[in-house]
């Protein structure tokens, strides 16, 4: 399965985080919200622009598009 930015995934798809490309501050912030390599994400909302909504570690998180572009994920379903 190919690895792609989270922002490319359609609503309803599930993916596993492979890598996060970001500075130290961003990585810790994402980590504390549950975005780490290996986390399973469910994309709930992706309108193509603006922030997305994903389910991660059983909670719903809104994430800015810029951040979503830095999260590399492998689509599982």
């Amino acid at each position: 399965m190919k690895v792609q930015p989270l922002s490319f995934l359609e609503p309803g798809s599930q993916a596993k985080i492979k890598d996060i490309i970001g500075g130290k501050g961003i990585n810790t912030k994402l980590a504390e919200m549950g975005f780490v390599s290996g986390s399973i994400l469910d994309v709930l909302r992706n309108d193509g622009t603006g922030p997305m909504v994903v389910a991660v570690m059983d909670s719903r998180v809104a994430i800015g598009r810029g951040m979503a572009q830095k999260i590399m994920a492998e689509k599982t379903t």
């Binding site: 919200m33 909670s59 719903r60 809104a62 994430i63 800015g64 810029g66």
Partner: peptide
């Protein structure tokens, strides 16, 4: 500088 990255929990 960029606005802080947007990551926010949407509580139930």
């Amino acid at each position: 500088g960029e606005a802080a990255p947007f990551v926010m929990e949407l509580p139930p």
